[in-house]
Design a protein around this nucleic acid. Structure first.
Length: 272
DNA sequence: ACGAGCGCCTGTCGGC
DNA sequence: TGCCGACAGGCGCTCG
């Protein structure tokens, strides 16, 4: 489900929610065992109970709950959501993990499709080592992006979805960034000239920042207050007119993912 | 190196 | 109505 802007929105919301920060975890209810990637259920419970939540961070699409001693890392994958409720609330159908705090509040991982994963680690370093640059940080420079594009001969869209290439982009923001940059999703990464790379670099940052500013995209049955869905240019706009040129938005399959683009604004590159 | 196919899961939607 | 396939904000794996 969520991509960088949604995860960042969740992080900010939880940071501002009373009942979590500087509170101790008093009990744990793991309701779907495979949700816990590591350590074992027993080690998880005995370690986490009694620890205090200090702060909440993010790296790519991972949410990092920094505790007194360890870090609880959560990846929401396709359908995960984090909710805060009072500890006496009956467990909702799709709650997979519930953490009760001394404040009387509960943090619940609700995840219909059960793809979400949690880890309790001493250090997040190894777990996150595979991730590429954080696209909104100053360290993600145009020159770095251009150089990295030249290292591959892949279709640009699946490459943008590759978390070791850039951390945090998913299917919505990949399509939106490519449209804003006017780049066809199947363009070979090494065939992008410097100007195209610059447009794409800027567009990636633009759409992610705008997504955060709008508190993320709310689609399907998961609504958490975001409204970027009202500003999407191509994603899920198949058959509708492009806001820029009025031609029909088309949906194709690229790297097994539904891909939306405007054939007029994002023309097929020479080499295809 | 690259991409296809599949598994992991549940739910919704459209066509017949 | 019921059934069936396609599809869904993700990612790891195997196989050519």
């Amino acid at each position: 489900m969520p991509e960088l802007p949604e995860v960042e929105t969740i992080r900010r919301t939880l940071m501002a929610t009373p009942g979590l920060i500087n509170k101790r975890i008093t009990s744990v209810d793991l309701r779907w065992e495979r949700t816990l990637a590591s350590p074992s259920k027993q080690a998880f419970k005995t370690s986490i109970i009694g620890q205090k939540l200090k702060t909440i961070g993010r790296r790519g699409k991972y949410i990092l709950f920094h505790l007194s001693l360890d870090s609880l890392v959560i990846h929401l994958r396709m359908s995960g959501d984090l909710r805060v409720e009072t500890s006496d609330t009956p467990a909702a159908k799709h709650h997979r993990l519930m953490l009760d705090f001394e404040s009387g509040y509960r943090l619940a991982l609700n995840d219909t499709r059960k793809f979400g994963r949690v880890w309790l680690v001493n250090s997040t370093e190894n777990l996150l080592a595979h991730l590429g640059p954080e696209p909104l940080e100053d360290t993600f420079t145009l020159q770095m992006f251009y150089n990295n594009l030249q290292k591959h001969r892949r279709q640009i869209k699946p490459l943008l979805l590759e978390q070791r290439f850039i951390a945090g982009i998913g299917n919505i923001y990949a399509d939106e960034a490519l449209h804003q940059a006017q780049v066809h999703p199947q363009t070979r990464s090494n065939m992008l000239n410097f100007e195209q790379a610059e447009r794409l670099w800027r567009s990636i940052r633009d759409v992610l920042n705008e997504g955060i500013r709008r508190n993320g995209t709310s689609i399907d049955w998961i609504y958490r207050g975001g409204n970027f869905q009202n500003y999407l240019q191509v994603y899920q706009r198949t058959g509708k007119p492009c806001y820029r040129c009025n031609n029909e938005i088309v949906r194709i399959r690229v790297g097994q993912r539904g891909t939306h683009f405007c054939p007029h604004c994002q023309p097929v590159p020479e080499e295809l």
